[in-house]
Amino acid sequence: MSRPCLELHRLRKSFGAVDVLTDISLTVLPGEFVSILGPSGAGKSTILQMLIGATDPDMGTMLLNGAPLVPKRDRFAFMPQRDALMPWRRIIDNTTLGLEVAGLSREAARAEVTPLFAEFGLAGFEQHYPAQLSGGMRQRAALLRTVVQQRPMLLLDEPFGALDALTRTQMQRWLAKMWSRHHWTVLLITHDVREAVLLSDRIYVLSSRPAHVVHQFRVPRDHPRQGVGSPALAAIEAEILQTLLHPED
């Protein structure tokens, strides 16, 4: 088995008198798609905030490739729920933003990003503004801006949560195909059980706050998955729902 590229051990986090995370331990292997599920307010996004250095754990260790994680040095490719595209920048300039912040010239950044527009379903929309794109296209542009930075891992914080049901399903299937093609290493925060089953190799289920890991599910690998109609995947989905409803049983 490959050595984990990310290891979290016994993480704890409180905000004032509120205990948010009490015992979070998980691993992510290279090229693996791992999801974290849990009730609203359980602190799922706080885990990603600790990884990117927006807040620090009170206790516990975070390792990247076996060494202590230093968030300001070991940067992840992070995509929040909202696309966060700048409305005054054209799509080509939004997708190159991370590369330009990293020091690439505008011309070099465009040379990196332009060949990927067709693969991300954005060919012909390079000169459009975000307001001229559909919700799904905006999310694809945000994901392109994220992955082109060539970070070792993608952190996705409910990236499709703001989309309507049909667009969300389309984006989930598209992401499954893209992950299978590019073999990204992904840690996804989601509240959508079906989304987690569709996309993931493994799923960690958290309790309510203060959150701890109550169960880990392994999903049979048959990527790209086109749906969760198979009896095996439907059974996993049902078991996860039961765990969320009765986490301590």
Rank of each mutant, 00 (worst) to 15 (best):
A67Q: 15
A142F: 06
S14R: 15
L69I: 06
R145E: 05
V186N: 00
Q49F: 10
G60R: 01
G41Q: 03
V70S: 10
Q132W: 10
R89K: 15
P115N: 09
P87A: 12
L26V: 09
K44Y: 00
G41L: 04
P80K: 04
A42V: 08
S25L: 12
P130F: 08
V205S: 02
S180E: 14
Q149I: 14
L199S: 00
R151T: 12
R168D: 02
D157M: 03
I189N: 00
S207I: 04
Q216R: 15
L63C: 06
S230V: 10
G124K: 12
G38S: 09
L233F: 05
L144N: 02
L241E: 05
L198G: 02
R90G: 10
F125E: 08
A84G: 05
W88M: 11
A42R: 03
K44T: 02
A17Q: 15
A108Q: 13
V28K: 03
T46C: 02
D157I: 00
S2L: 14
R138I: 06
L8H: 00
S230A: 10
Q49V: 07
E237R: 11
V219Q: 01
E7W: 08
H182D: 10
A165C: 11
T167W: 06
F15K: 07
I47P: 00
A196H: 00
P159Q: 05
Q150K: 15
L51D: 01
R221Q: 13
D93L: 09
I189Y: 00
L154N: 02
Q242R: 15
Q226M: 11
H212M: 14
L156R: 02
A131K: 14
A141H: 01
L175S: 01
E32L: 11
V214G: 02
Q139G: 06
V228E: 04
P87D: 08
P220Q: 07
G31C: 06
G41T: 05
Y204P: 01
R181S: 13
D192H: 02
D56K: 15
A142E: 03
G121T: 12
Q132G: 04
D93M: 10
Q49M: 12
A176Q: 03
K72A: 12
H223C: 03
A111F: 10
D201Q: 06
S40W: 04
V101L: 14
L69K: 02
Y129C: 09
L198K: 00
A77V: 07
T55S: 13
P57S: 04
S134I: 13
D249F: 15
K13L: 09
Q139S: 07
Y204I: 03
H182N: 14
V20A: 04
E107A: 14
F120T: 08
R12T: 13
A234T: 11
T146E: 09
G227T: 07
R218P: 08
R181W: 12
L198R: 00
R3N: 15
V214H: 03
S134P: 05
R173S: 08
M62S: 03
M59D: 14
D23L: 13
P224L: 09
L64Q: 06
S180Y: 14
G16L: 06
E158D: 07
G229T: 13
E158P: 01
A54D: 13
T185N: 02
E119V: 09
I92H: 08
G136I: 07
H182F: 14
V148G: 05
